[in-house]
Measured scan of single mutants.
Amino acid sequence: SEIVVAMYDFQATEAHDLRLERGQEYIILEKNDLHWWRARDKYGSEGYIPSNYVTGKK
C-alpha cells in the first residue's frame, strides 16, 4: 500500500472527507478520482483527501 505525507492541513467539510494534519502519514486506499483519493489515517479513520495536499513518502 502507498504511504503519503500531508504537506498542508485540510479541514474535512463533508462527512466522507478525512482531515489532514501537516506532516502526518496516510495510507492510500483508492485513487479512482484524480483530485480526491480515499485514505486512512493512523487512528483508522477513512475518507477522501485532496490529492494535491499530499506527497509520496521519501
Rank of each mutant, 00 (worst) to 15 (best):
K57T: 11
L18K: 00
I3P: 03
G56E: 15
R40N: 05
K42E: 07
N52A: 14
G23I: 04
R40T: 05
E21F: 10
L34I: 12
G23F: 07
L29P: 00
R40Y: 02
R40A: 07
I49E: 01
I3K: 08
D41H: 01
R38C: 12
D9G: 06
G44R: 02
H16L: 09
Y48W: 12
M7I: 14
E2A: 09
K58T: 14
I28D: 00
G56D: 15
F10N: 02
H16N: 13
I27C: 09
S45W: 09
D17T: 15
A6H: 00
Y53L: 13
L20H: 00
E2R: 09
W37M: 04
L18V: 02
A12L: 04
D41T: 01
Q11A: 12
S45F: 13
Y8M: 12
S1F: 15
D9I: 04
W36E: 03
Y48A: 04
K31R: 11
R38T: 09
R40Q: 09
F10L: 08
L20D: 02
E25K: 07
A15V: 12
I28K: 01
A39V: 11
T55E: 13
L34M: 12
I28G: 00
R40W: 04
L34C: 13
Y53I: 06
F10W: 15
R40L: 09
G23C: 11
R19T: 15
R40V: 07
Y53R: 08
K57E: 10
I28F: 01
Q24G: 09
L20M: 09
N32G: 11
H35K: 10
L34R: 13
G44D: 04
Y8S: 07
E30Y: 07
E21C: 10
P50M: 05
N32L: 12
G56A: 15
Y48G: 02
A15N: 10
Y8N: 06
W37R: 00
E30P: 01
R40K: 10
W37L: 03
A15Y: 09
A6L: 03
G56T: 15
F10I: 05
M7D: 06
D9Y: 05
A12E: 07
E21K: 09
Y43K: 07
V5T: 08
W37G: 00
R38K: 14
D33A: 07
S51G: 06
R22M: 12
K57P: 10
G56W: 14
N52G: 11
Y48M: 14
L34Y: 10
E2K: 08
P50W: 06
V4A: 06
K42V: 09
I49Q: 01
K42W: 05
Y8C: 15
V4H: 04
K58W: 14
K42Q: 12
K31M: 07
D33T: 11
W36K: 09
K57H: 10
Y8V: 07
G44I: 04
D33H: 10
G56I: 14
Y8E: 08
G47C: 07
S1N: 13
N32K: 12
L29K: 03
R19F: 07
Y26F: 02
Q11W: 13
L20I: 04
R38A: 05
K58A: 14
K58G: 14
W37S: 01
E30T: 08
V5L: 07
S51N: 07
Y26D: 00
G47V: 02
Q24H: 10
S1Y: 15
L18F: 06
Y26Q: 00
E14R: 14
Y43A: 08
G56S: 15
E14P: 03
G44V: 01
E2Q: 11
A6N: 04
N52V: 10
A39Y: 03
E2D: 11
A6Y: 04
I3L: 10
E14D: 13
D41A: 01
D41Q: 02
A15L: 12
I3S: 06
D41Y: 03
V4E: 01
R22P: 04
S45T: 12
P50Y: 04
V54A: 02
M7C: 14
D41S: 03
E46R: 02
I27K: 06
Y48T: 07
E30I: 08
Q24T: 04
T13N: 11
L34F: 10
P50T: 03
I49N: 01
H16F: 11
G47I: 03
T13P: 10
T13W: 10
H16A: 11
K42N: 06
I28Y: 03
P50E: 04
W36C: 10
Y43D: 09
A12T: 09
N32T: 14
D33I: 05
Y8F: 11
G44Y: 03
D41L: 01
K57Y: 12
R38N: 04
Y8W: 12
G56N: 13
E46A: 03
A39N: 01
Y53H: 11
I49G: 01
A39M: 02
V54K: 02
V5P: 01
G47Q: 02
A12S: 12
E2Y: 12
Q11Y: 13
W36S: 07
Y53D: 02
I49C: 04
A12K: 08
E25Q: 09
S45Q: 14
N52R: 11
K58Y: 15
H16M: 10
V5N: 03
G23M: 04
A15I: 12
R22I: 10
L29Q: 00
L18T: 01
A15S: 12
T13R: 13
Y8Q: 08
F10Q: 03
Y53Q: 06
I49Y: 00
I28T: 01
K31A: 07
R19Y: 08
H16G: 15
V5E: 05
M7V: 10
Y53M: 12
D9A: 06
A39W: 02
T55H: 09
G44S: 03
M7A: 05
K31V: 04
E46T: 08
H35N: 12
D9E: 06
G23W: 05
D33F: 09
H35V: 12
K42T: 07
I49L: 05
V5M: 08
I27F: 10
Q11F: 14
T55L: 09
E14H: 14
A6R: 01
K58I: 15
D41G: 02
M7H: 05
I49W: 02
W37N: 00
I49K: 00
R38H: 08
R22L: 07
Y26W: 01
A12Y: 04
W37D: 00
S45M: 14
K57M: 11
S1V: 15
E21Y: 09
Q24I: 05
S45I: 12
A12F: 04
E21M: 08
Y43F: 11
G44C: 06
G56K: 12
S45G: 12
D33K: 07
P50Q: 05
I28V: 12
E21D: 08
T13S: 11
Y26T: 01
S51W: 05
K31H: 07
T55C: 13
Y53W: 06
Y43V: 05
G44Q: 04
A39H: 03
Y53T: 04
D33M: 08
K57W: 09
W36F: 08
N52M: 10
I3E: 05
Q24N: 08
Y26G: 00
R19M: 11
E21T: 09
L20N: 01
R40S: 06
A39P: 00
E25I: 09
I27E: 11
D17H: 15
P50A: 04
E30V: 05
Q24Y: 07
L34S: 14
D9W: 04
W36V: 08
V54E: 02
S1Q: 14
E46P: 01
N32D: 11
Y53S: 08
L18N: 02
G56R: 12
Y26A: 00
R40I: 07
R19W: 07
T55M: 09
H16C: 15
A12R: 06
D17Q: 15
Q11I: 14
L29G: 02
G44F: 03
R19I: 09
M7L: 15
K31W: 05
P50C: 10
P50N: 07
D33R: 07
G23S: 03
D9F: 05
Q11V: 14
V5W: 10
A12C: 10
G56C: 11
N52E: 13
Y43Q: 08
E2C: 14
I3M: 08
E14G: 15
G47E: 01
G44E: 04
R22G: 06
E25L: 10
I28S: 02
R40F: 03
W37I: 03
P50R: 05
D41P: 01
R38Q: 05
K42A: 09
